[in-house]
């Protein structure tokens, strides 16, 4: 990058001089960015130093030099803990089901929205569908619990009205239903929001393709199959690959808020496991080991995703 001088001074005199001159000329840009560079260091990079805790028998009262080092003992304990494998299973299961449902439903909904000819109705439908995205998980968990409740819950009432069953189901107390409930809650909350990207991709497809298909007498269904879906294929592939990078980071809000002691064998995920063992039971070092496992796996997945992405598109997402 050649620096452009606008004050008419000679551009290069001495190497050292130019560095300081450009530095001084950009002093406002530095003033506007360096505080945040420092901030990012403290809040995003410095915590990595805390990973040393996982190799110590960490006691908050002691200074760093006084901590007792224990090597990889905490990791050994972790990998021998049955709960860990159960938690890992839950995390991966909810992540996989979530990715599949979180892909299929928004694509179908985006295509349906795109087929609506009345612009006013389409706009109203979109606005309504974005609503749950902006509502907190606390509220969503409350709504889901209310809808699935055994006394006057809408879902039980509806199923009994249809005559499918005679007794209300205790949805929130059945562990084997938990993954499904979390996934459906997520679909309910995010489907509308996730259509934004697909609608934008669909809008980029040339109208002449549809015109040509119409002339050839293709039905609307065939137009979707042969024009719309191929037109958004790249977007789908990119988003799918990017979601691999986040496979293990599924968050814990929904599991925390929707879960309870009756379903914990299915609701416990890695972050909650570290919260409970690390903070509530004060096993800080063990909790940090869980955090490290989580981060390392997600970095590996990110590189895998990036490699896959490079192969397919010759570009990098990082």
């Amino acid at each position: 990058m050649k620096a452009v001088t606008i004050d008419g001074q000679p551009q290069v005199r001495r190497d050292k001089g130019t560095f300081w001159r450009t530095f001084l000329r950009n002093k406002y840009l530095y003033a506007m960015s360096l505080p945040f560079v420092l901030w990012v260091f403290v809040f995003s990079y410095y915590p990595l130093w805390g990973w040393t805790m996982a190799f110590q028998k960490y006691k908050p009262a002691l200074s760093f030099g006084e901590q007792q080092w224990v090597g990889v003992d905490h990791f050994k304990t972790l990998f021998q803990d049955d709960t860990f494998y159960q938690v890992l299973r839950n995390t991966l299961a909810m992540s996989f089901i979530g990715i599949i449902a979180g892909f299929l439903v928004p694509i179908v909904f985006a295509i349906m929205l795109n087929e609506i000819r009345s612009m006013a109705f389409k706009r109203v439908a979109q606005t309504v569908s974005y609503l749950p995205h902006f509502v907190s998980w606390v509220v969503v968990a409350g709504l889901v619990t209310k809808m699935l409740s055994t006394d006057n819950g809408a879902v039980n009432d509806f199923l009994m009205w249809l005559g499918i069953m005679n007794e209300p189901i205790q949805f929130m107390a059945k562990g084997e239903l938990f993954w499904g409930i979390v996934t459906l809650s997520d679909v309910w909350k995010e489907t509308g929001w996730n259509t934004i990207i697909y609608l934008a991709a669909i809008a980029g497809i040339g109208p002449e393709l549809y015109e040509a298909a119409k002339v050839d007498g293709a039905s609307r269904l065939r137009q979707i199959w042969h024009i719309t879906l191929p037109g958004i294929r790249t977007t789908i592939v990119i988003l799918l690959i990017m979601s691999i990078g986040h496979l293990i980071q599924i968050g814990f809000e929904k599991q925390f808020l929707l879960g309870n002691n009756l379903v914990r064998d299915y609701s416990q995920v890695l972050d909650l496991y570290s919260l409970e063992y690390g903070l509530q039971m004060s096993r800080y070092s063990f909790g940090t080991a869980i955090n490290i496992f989580n981060s390392v796996v997600s970095i590996i997945l990110l590189f895998a995703a990036n490699g896959l992405f490079k192969r397919i598109t010759k570009e990098s997402i990082m």
Partner: peptide, 17 residues
């Protein structure tokens, strides 16, 4: 900055920070 979207110290180191 972009790296911070993927790498994090995790819950417990952040709590102590």
């Amino acid at each position: 900055l972009a790296l911070t979207m993927y790498v994090s110290g995790g819950l417990i180191p952040f709590y102590f920070l």
